[in-house]
Design a protein around this nucleic acid. Structure first.
Lengths: 227, 227
DNA sequence: ACTTATTTTTAGGGCAACCTAAAAATTAAA
DNA sequence: TTTAATTTTTAGGTTGCCCTAAAAATAAGT
């Protein structure tokens, strides 16, 4: 399996998490290539039965394609956690490194890393790590910016694509598993004031849109999500 | 720096360790490509001032080329040791993995691995790890097959290119730093009978040609080479 | 519904790194 | 030293993945 094919499948998978149909333009923009290039590769993937392609209508992964995408994502997330745990790489740098390593990981080393980490369920940003069979855990979660009333929440996951965001959250000590109390929500700009341990911070709507939390109705049931 | 350029430089370096002149054919054979392909890339490397090239006469690395080669080798050997120490990968498998990883290692991670391992001087096969400046330790050493009289020797290094050899030596518990006593050398086929701890083994000349040891005259001076 | 704007695809190239086959240079042998 | 064998290079081609520019299909605006 070639590197670029792995990359296309992974990116299509990630877009499918957010959008009904994945269009050529979306994919091209996400991958930093031209739409023409995306079209070409999509046709190749379709010929390999990794995606279903209807010209002008977008792509979607086949079962085989999704399985491959999930394997790449498994590699990516295991490597992220491995770099963090074994080498102390800060969480804002693990993503870019994993982008490169994910394509050179053998089955044997994958298994050893998995064992070393104790078959972890989440990566350093709280994203679920698919198992070897391609099962990926779906947790009930809402974006922090979509919460409308003051309440206690637990951070489940944060976006990993912008290192600056991660450094900011790191400074505030906000990580997956962190408990926050939403004190108030400003109607004007939806900025949110939260308490965390001893300190209080005000988070912009941009920041809260990149944070997913456990919804209130699930907070009681001891869904502690210990790693 | 591109993967294939790194590979060419590394292979030229390795050939230069054994031969005066590195020829197109040697390089092509070592890399599993055709001589025509090697010629093409050599010209490219020469244009980049990484090798000195005289048509029909072979190549040699420039200072810049040697420095790059040594950086790749540093990556390779640090990764081999890291895989062995951190993940318990057996020494007959670390080479092939490192071949892939060496091309995706960032400076930051290189430093972290180096720190994790305590700035090690040798890889799992006993080969010296160049420092960041490109200095590589030269130890006095002889091939075991070149020793002509019974004596005590210490294994310094073994060839890492054949996993089968490494598994064989592993079964015999022969590793770098292992002390052996040469009991006898058979004149007919140069096979060697050695004692190691409680057991005695007879090694063929093929095997002994892949093992480097500390020459007798250096054995006293406590050159223990602790890792 | 028809024109305009946008999205997507096709057509035609470029570049890196490989290949085969033929030509040229070097080395070895008679 | 002339021929034969070997090594090395050149010439031309393939594949993978990217590009730009132009054409075609779809979607939007009046």
């Amino acid at each position: 399996m070639l590197k670029s094919i792995e990359d296309y499948l992974k990116n299509i998978y990630e877009l499918q998490e957010h959008f009904e149909r994945v269009t050529t333009n979306q994919l091209a923009e996400k991958m930093g290539i031209t739409p023409a290039s995306a079209t070409g590769m999509i046709k190749k993937l379709a010929a390999m039965n990794l995606v279903k392609y209807r010209p002008y209508q977008g792509v979607e992964l086949t079962d085989a394609g999704r399985l491959m995408a999930l394997e790449v994502i498994r590699h990516h997330r295991l490597i992220e956690l491995f770099l963090a745990k074994a080498l102390g790489v800060p969480w804002d740098r693990v993503h870019d490194e994993a982008e490169k390593w994910e394509h050179v990981l053998s089955e044997d080393i994958e298994e050893r890393i998995d064992r070393f980490l104790g078959s972890p369920r989440w990566d350093p940003h709280g994203a679920p790590i698919p198992d070897k069979a391609g099962n990926i855990e779906q947790r009930p979660r809402v974006r922090l910016c979509d919460i409308t009333h003051p309440q206690a929440v637990r951070v489940l996951e944060v976006s990993d694509h912008d290192p600056e965001l991660l450094r900011y959250l790191g400074k505030l000590n906000i990580y997956p598993q962190t408990d926050l109390t939403i004190l108030s929500i400003e109607p004007f700009d939806k900025s949110m004031t939260v308490r965390h341990q001893q300190s209080t911070h005000t988070l912009s709507a941009l920041v809260t849109s990149y944070i997913w939390v456990l919804p209130e109705e699930h907070m009681k049931k001891g869904q502690a999500n210990a790693v």
